[in-house]
Design a protein around this nucleic acid. Structure first.
Lengths: 319, 319
DNA sequence: TTGAAAGCGCTAACAC
DNA sequence: GTGTTAGCGCTTTCAA
C-alpha cells in the first residue's frame, strides 16, 4: 500500500516498518510490466564521440531526470540499418524515443515513425507528419559563413563534406551551391570527408590541391583535423588559407588560432526534446517545431584571401 | 517458439509467418520479468560534461552493445547522496552497475556494494572487498608532473584542487604533499577549485596571488579555464607561469599553447569495465584489478621558471 | 476500509 | 516433438 489512497495510518506504518525490516523495495521491472510504462526514455545517436551528441545526451538526461525518468542510450555508429534496429528495440524498452540526426532514409523513417511514437526528431524533419522535430538551420549558418568568407575576398571554397547519410550535411551542401551560383568566378569544390578529427586531417592535402583559399568544414572536429593537417603541410592559418567549422564545440575558442564557426544550442536541443516527449507521453499540447538559427562566431581562423593562392607545401616564411 | 530447440522446421516457419503478419515482437519488459534479467547495464557518472566520463560511457556502451546489452546512464551531479539513490535505482532496472569515480563515502559504498552487485568500480578501490576495480594511478601521474616541473626549476607550485568528494583528487593531493617534503625551499599551495572550465577560470587570480611559478590543475578542463584566466590577467604561458593538466582530453593538444598533461586510457576503462561486469554476471573468472599508469605528455604549457616571479597583472612586453 | 484474485506478456517445466 | 500451465512481482478491480 505504498503511495496514495485512503488507508488506515496505522496499517501504513506497520507495512512501511515491515518493508524496512525486510529491506524490501518494489521491482521496477514488474512494475513496468503491470503499469505498461517504464519511466525510461531512449536516445539514439550516430556517434557518441561527437560533442554535439554528448551535449544533447546531457541535456536530455538532465531534463528527464528532473521528471524522474531514466535514459537509455545507444549508438548507431553512423549506420542506418543498425539505427533502425536499435530504435525499435530501445523504444520497446522505454516510453519514448528521441532520434538524434537519424541516418535512416526518409521513407523508412516515415514508416517507422508510428511504431516509434512517442518520438521526437533532432536535426531531421519529417514533412507532413506530426512527429515533433527540433533542428538547426544549417543552411542559414552556411549562408552566413559564406558571406563572411566572401567579404574577405574568397572566391574559391572547398567544402569538407560530412557523412553521406547526414541530412544536415545535405542541407549544408544545398546552401553552398545556392551561394555558388550567386557570383561570377565563384568556385566551389566538394570533397568527401567525414565527421571526425581524423577525417579532417586526412582531407587536408586534397583540400589544398583544389587551390581553394578557404575551407568550409562540415563541423568543428573536421575543421580541427584539417587545421592540424594544413599546418603540417606548412600552411599558415589564416595567412595562407582560411578555415571555418560548425557547432562551436567548447574548445573551438581555445585552439590556435581560435576557430571561426557557427554556434548552435546543443544542450537546449536535448532539453526541448524532453519537453516534446513529455507532452507526447502525457497527451498535453506539444510545442511547435523549431529551427534554431546558428550564430556566426568570427574568430581568427579566417582572414583576407592571400596575395598568392596557397598551393601544396610552401617554404616557411614565404608569406 | 522463437530461439532454439528441436522443433519441426515447418512449424517454425508457420509461427514466424504469423508473427510477421501480425507484426508481433516479444515485449522486452515481460521478457525481463520472466527471465529475471534485463540485458541492460547501468553507468553512474558524477558529471556528463566531463570528457573523461564521456569516453568511459562510450567505451562501456560499445562493449556492452557487442554483447547485445543496452546502457542506462545517470548523472549524479557530483552529489554523493543522489549518487547512492541513483545507483540502487539504476541497478534494479538492470543486470549490473558500473560506478565511475563514485563520490559516496567509503563506509556507505561498502555497505551498498552487496546490493549493487554485480558492480564494478572505476577510479575507486574498496580495499578488502571483492568488487572489481579499474583505476588510474593519479599519484604516479602527479609525481611525474612534479618531477617535470622541478626539472624546469620550479619550486613553488599551486594546486587547483578538484571536487571535495573525489578520491582521485585526494590521491593527487597526497602525491603532491609527498613531493613537497622532498626538497628544501619547496612550497606547495592548495586552492579549492573544482572540475570545470569555469572553476579553473575563476581560480586564476588566486593562483597568481600565491606567487607560484607553476600551476598544477586537477584536470585538463580546469587547466584550460585557468589558462584562459591567466591570459586575461596579462600573463604569458609558459613565459610567466607554467601550467599542467590531467587526462589528456582530445583537445589538449590543440590549445595554445598545447597543454602539458598526463594521458589516461579513458575508453579502455569503459571497455574493461564491461569485461569485468560480464564475467561477474556469468560467473566467469574476473580479471585482476588494474591501475593504469598515466603517461606524461610534455607539450608547450610548461617551461623554465621565469627570472622574476609572475605576480598579478603585468604590463605587456615586460618579459 | 481491507483482502483476494485476475492479469500485464513472457519463459520454463511439465505432461501429452 | 508439441501443447499446456504455473509463475516472474507488481497493479488494479472487485468483493467482503
Amino acid at each position: 500500500m505504498n503511495g496514495t489512497s485512503t488507508v488506515a495510518p496505522e496499517l501504513v506504518a506497520r507495512v512501511r516498518a515491515a518493508a524496512e525490516a525486510l529491506n524490501y523495495e518494489p521491482s521496477p521491472v514488474a512494475r513496468s510490466l503491470a503499469l505498461g510504462r517504464t519511466s525510461t526514455v531512449s536516445l539514439i545517436v550516430p556517434d557518441l564521440a561527437n560533442p554535439m551528441f554528448q551535449d544533447v545526451l546531457r541535456g536530455l538526461s538532465n531534463a528527464a531526470a528532473e521528471e524522474g525518468h531514466r535514459l537509455l542510450v545507444a549508438e548507431s555508429n553512423e549506420n542506418a540499418g543498425e539505427e533502425a534496429i536499435l530504435a525499435v528495440e530501445a523504444r520497446r524498452r522505454s516510453d519514448g524515443l528521441v532520434l538524434a540526426s537519424p541516418r535512416v532514409p526518409e521513407e523508412e523513417l516515415r514508416s517507422l515513425s508510428e511504431r516509434l511514437a512517442p518520438l521526437v526528431l533532432l536535426n531531421r524533419e519529417l514533412p507532413g507528419s506530426s512527429v515533433p522535430s527540433l533542428s538547426v538551420d544549417y543552411a542559414a549558418g552556411i549562408k552566413e559563413i559564406v558571406a563572411h568568407l566572401v567579404a574577405f575576398g574568397h572566391r574559391h571554397l572547398v567544402y569538407l563534406s560530412g557523412p553521406e547519410a547526414s541530412t544536415s550535411n545535405r542541407d549544408r551542401i544545398a546552401a553552398l551551391h545556392a551561394a555558388a551560383v550567386l557570383g561570377p568566378g565563384f568556385t566551389l569544390t566538394e570533397l568527401a570527408c567525414g565527421a571526425t578529427f581524423e577525417d579532417g586531417h586526412q582531407a587536408a592535402r586534397a583540400a589544398v590541391a583544389t587551390g581553394a583559399t578557404a575551407v568550409v568544414a562540415y563541423n568543428d572536429m573536421v575543421a580541427f583535423g584539417a587545421m592540424s593537417g594544413l599546418r603540417e603541410l606548412g600552411l599558415d592559418i589564416p595567412g595562407d588559407i582560411s578555415i571555418t567549422g560548425f557547432d562551436d564545440i567548447p574548445f573551438a575558442r581555445y585552439t590556435s588560432p581560435p576557430l571561426t564557426t557557427a554556434s548552435i544550442p546543443r544542450n537546449e536541443l536535448g532539453r526541448q526534446a524532453w519537453g516534446r516527449l513529455w507532452a507526447l507521453m502525457n497527451g498535453g499540447p506539444v510545442a511547435h517545431n523549431v529551427r534554431f538559427q546558428p550564430r556566426l562566431l568570427v574568430r581568427d581562423s579566417t582572414g583576407p584571401v592571400p596575395d598568392r593562392p596557397a598551393s601544396g607545401r610552401r617554404r616557411k616564411g614565404s608569406a
